[in-house]
């Protein structure tokens, strides 16, 4: 019973409506209620946010950096996904 460590939680904060939640840091808490209280006390002392998400770290599945090549490099040469790939006459100012 004793010396059991509190699980780690990740905290995400929406700084104002219209923006996405962003990861701001982590903390320790026994459960979601405490994680929410702690997140408020630790990470919003300077009006940093209007909404908080907390998620226990162990519930996050992260990509493996060793797979970086196969995961992300294939996207590199797909220039045709970007608008600049397509040529338009200079006279056309807006598109």
């Amino acid at each position: 019973m004793s010396n059991q460590e509190f699980p780690i939680w990740e905290v995400f904060i929406r700084s104002k409506n219209g923006l996405e939640h962003r990861h701001v840091g982590s903390l320790h808490a026994t459960d979601a209620t405490m994680a929410m209280e702690n997140a408020r006390d630790v990470y919003t002392r300077r009006e940093e946010g209007v909404s908080i998400w907390v998620v226990e770290s162990k519930n996050i599945t992260a990509s493996n950096p060793e797979n970086q090549g196969e995961l992300f490099e294939p996207a590199k040469d797909k220039a045709y996904r970007h608008p600049t790939f397509y040529e338009l006459p200079i006279e056309l100012k807006h598109m």
Binding site: M1, S2, N3, Q4, F6, T30, D31, M34
Partner: peptide, 12 residues
């Protein structure tokens, strides 16, 4: 603080 932390774990 040990008994406090233990209590919080037990409660959750």
């Amino acid at each position: 603080g040990e008994w406090v932390r233990d209590a919080a774990m037990a409660h959750s």
